[in-house]
Design a protein around this nucleic acid. Structure first.
Lengths: 127, 127
DNA sequence: TCCTCAGATCGACATACTTCGATGCGATGA
DNA sequence: TCATCGCATCGAAGTATGTCGATCTGAGGA
């Protein structure tokens, strides 16, 4: 294999002769179904209000936060906040528990780390 | 500090007497503006086709991938793929370079790690 | 110069999402 | 038992998003 020097610097100004226009893939890409699930998780975090809600609830740490403490910081109506919370619960980021007449929301342990891992290292999106 | 035993297990069945219904916050929550930016980044990854595109391009690693290699795996039309790529570029996840008559897309180094960090450790969403 | 090809942009359409006021429901307190 | 409180659900309205066919642009080759 002599003479393979500086191939990285000598990218051809035109593509390979025929057929392929790109270099072949180095690794396997994600399958459609996992892609769908991953996108669904990201969609749950794709609204500013929901990002704030997760942050506020994470800041409460131990006991969780009730809806009454979440409405005012995000500046939205109670039904809207309730709607966002439901989306976050269904996506697995939050858990809901009822104590007395208050409902408390808490971060599902590990849920954020799991989604973070999908973006790094040897996962389908990481490099 | 005697007698502070098992307070974690003895959560009251009703909330604190008056006013506050939750424990106070342990840390600072995210501000509205950073929340908006973070949500915007997540929104770029909130579509299955875009997750697949990022994965396929990441799998090409070195030289990047051209649009002709991206249309078929995601099963969408060329204008639609082009549309999704634009969103990913604007969100900072991809970079585009022209070589000959082909356009090549590559992952912006560190962009995925940066978003992953916002979900873990001492960041506003992590715990 | 003209033709061809890769791919970006445009316009249109259907669907999904965000938001709110009104209402329903279960738990507390009187 | 009845009134009140916390909050989930419902229905409606406006906006944003995903998708495609048609078209435009810019680079290469004849």
């Amino acid at each position: 294999m002599g003479g393979m020097t500086a191939t990285r610097e000598l990218l051809p100004t035109v593509a390979p002769p025929s057929g392929a226009c790109c270099a072949p893939m180095v690794r396997e890409a994600i399958d459609p179904e996992p892609a769908r699930e991953l996108a669904h998780a990201f969609k749950a975090l794709s609204d500013p209000a929901r990002v704030q809600l997760v942050s506020i609830i994470a800041a409460h740490d131990g006991g969780g936060a009730c809806v009454c403490d979440l409405t005012e910081p995000v500046g939205l109506s109670q039904p809207t906040v309730s709607h966002h919370l439901k989306i976050l619960v269904e996506a697995g980021f939050l858990t809901r528990t009822q104590r007395g007449k208050w409902g408390y929301y808490a971060i599902t342990p590990g849920s954020l780390d799991r989604i973070a891992e999908s973006l790094t290292g040897a996962s389908p999106l990481g490099r």
